[in-house]
């Protein structure tokens, strides 16, 4: 029983982790600078304009 519960919890956690990875991959995002946002004068996290 305990085995089942722990395994289920792990499976759910793994599902969310994989979903997060998949979504990041899909949207071309990276976790390096925080999941999505970055405030202050955070250099590099906010992308810089393309010089054309």
């Amino acid at each position: 029983m305990a085995t089942f519960i722990v395994a289920a919890v792990l499976a759910v956690a793994l599902f969310f982790a994989l979903r997060h990875i998949y979504r990041n991959f899909h949207e071309g995002k990276s976790d390096c600078c925080g999941a999505s946002e970055c405030s202050g004068s955070c250099c590099g996290c906010h992308s810089v304009p393309e010089k054309k």
């Binding site: 982790a17 976790d31 925080g34 955070c42 996290c45």
Partner: peptide, 14 residues
């Protein structure tokens, strides 16, 4: 926090 948070998120996911 914003930069370091990413490291925590990565630890919990990938």
């Amino acid at each position: 926090w914003d930069k370091g948070k990413g490291y925590l998120v990565k630890a919990g996911t990938i």
